[in-house]
Simulated scan of single mutants.
Amino acid sequence: MAQSTSFLGNRNSTMSGLSSLSSPLLSQATGLAALAAPSALTIANLPRWIGVRQRFEQFHRNLGLTPLQQLDGHTKREGVVSCLNRSYHGTTSRTDNSFFIGSWGKDTAIRPPRDVDIYFLLPATVYHRFQTYTWNRQSALLQDVKDKLAVTYPTTGMRGDGQVIVVNFGSYSVEVVPAFELQTPGRYWICDAHNGGSYQETAPWAEVDHIEATDSANARNLRPLIRMLKAWQACCSVPIKSFHLELLAAAFIAQSPWRLKDWFYFDWLTRDFLAFLYHRANSTILVPGTFQTIYLGDAWQSRALSAYNRANKACAHEYENRVAEAGDEWQKIFGTDIPRVA
């Protein structure tokens, strides 16, 4: 990539002056404003950050599902749906009465693929049949769906997991969520077999719309950020759910000063998110559509702090054009999908 003194203008002739979250901890009062607090460059017309744009652009390319992985996911979904349609709807359709949810539904999946999550819509007659059960109707319903799948996949490992049936294929699993469509558009009941069983109302399309609207409003930077955070989650075994990371990333990017920038700012964008995340320990988030409150806990907070401090070092190396040293720090956070040398 051709370099020029425009880099100084692109970075507002600044560099972050924050050295560490741990000493002292970044306060909630200063928040991300402290991260953006600049110290003026003293060397004029010297290109800086020469490796950032190429590094993060390549990182994002490395995270994308390959065509074969996408085909594999669609094929596995279609096989499962065809089996269930024959059993519950009397059709052989490979897609009807189903749709992707989770990372496949929101277009935030990364490679290697994790689970493929789908809703399968059951007819109302199934709901009424299981209403005659006197104990844990939801557990019995999940078992019924599992039994239907076992006819087609007799040697494939399966298990019920509270709300889903996990079909353990060789490359990755398909998680089937049996659901009933409600009269309110976009709303569904899904099973929850815990604590004696109940139905939980969900609004999966509201979640998709939230990610899409936020991504669109922020220069299409949200989904790349989410994919990178999932790479950190996997590389560092961060005990936080992907769904929670998605919602937190959406909340963060809407107020980030770098939200409308390009790849050239992704070092600061990822670093600042980790500071934002650190301060969300023991707080709550709301699920779009249902407005369910989710408690975030703090099991992941120490990993967020460690990742932030490494990111802060990497950003300093990027500014000084120590490309390989920056890459070493980034790889401690994200793994080898992010290039060591851009």
Rank of each mutant, 00 (worst) to 15 (best):
V116R: 02
Q131Y: 04
R111M: 04
V164I: 13
G186A: 09
G170Y: 11
V151R: 08
R129K: 13
V116M: 06
Y127R: 11
N136E: 07
R187Y: 14
A179K: 03
D147I: 10
Q183S: 14
V164F: 06
D107H: 12
V151T: 10
F169A: 07
I101V: 15
T134L: 13
M158E: 08
G162A: 10
V177L: 15
H128D: 15
Y153S: 01
D115A: 12
S139M: 09
H128F: 09
P185Y: 02
T152I: 00
T152V: 00
V116T: 13
A109E: 15
Y188K: 02
E181P: 15
P123K: 01
V151Q: 09
W135D: 13
I118N: 03
T152G: 03
T155A: 14
R137E: 14
K148L: 07
D107R: 11
S103W: 04
F180L: 11
H128P: 00
P112W: 04
N168V: 08
F169E: 06
F100R: 02
I110V: 15
Q138C: 04
R129C: 01
T156K: 02
V176D: 04
Q131N: 15
L122G: 07
R129H: 08
G160K: 08
Y153F: 15
I118F: 08
D161Y: 02
P185G: 02
D147E: 10
K106I: 06
I118H: 05
Q183I: 11
R111L: 06
G186R: 05
Q131A: 14
A140P: 00
A179I: 03
I165A: 02
V145K: 01
W135V: 15
V167K: 02
T155M: 05
R159T: 06
Q143V: 12
Q138M: 07
V176R: 01
I118Y: 06
V177C: 10
L142R: 02
G157I: 11
G162Y: 05
D161A: 12
I165H: 03
Y172H: 15
T125G: 10
G162L: 05
G157E: 00
A140C: 01
L121I: 15
D144C: 08
G162V: 07
N168D: 13
V116D: 05
T108R: 06
G170E: 09
K106F: 04
S139E: 14
E175P: 04
K106N: 12
F120C: 06
W104V: 06
A179V: 08
T132N: 08
Y172G: 11
V174D: 07
Y133M: 11
P178E: 05
L141M: 12
H128S: 14
I118R: 03
T125S: 14
P185K: 03
A109L: 00
I101G: 01
S103I: 07
F180N: 12
Q138Y: 05
F120E: 02
L142A: 02
Q131S: 13
S139Y: 13
V126F: 02
R111I: 09
V174G: 06
L121Y: 11
F120Q: 01
L121F: 11
I165W: 04
P123E: 05
L149S: 09
D147L: 14
Y172R: 13
A140W: 08
G160E: 15
T108Q: 13
E175A: 08
Y127D: 13
V164H: 01
E175N: 10
T155Y: 13
D117H: 03
P185W: 01
W104R: 15
T184E: 15
D161N: 14
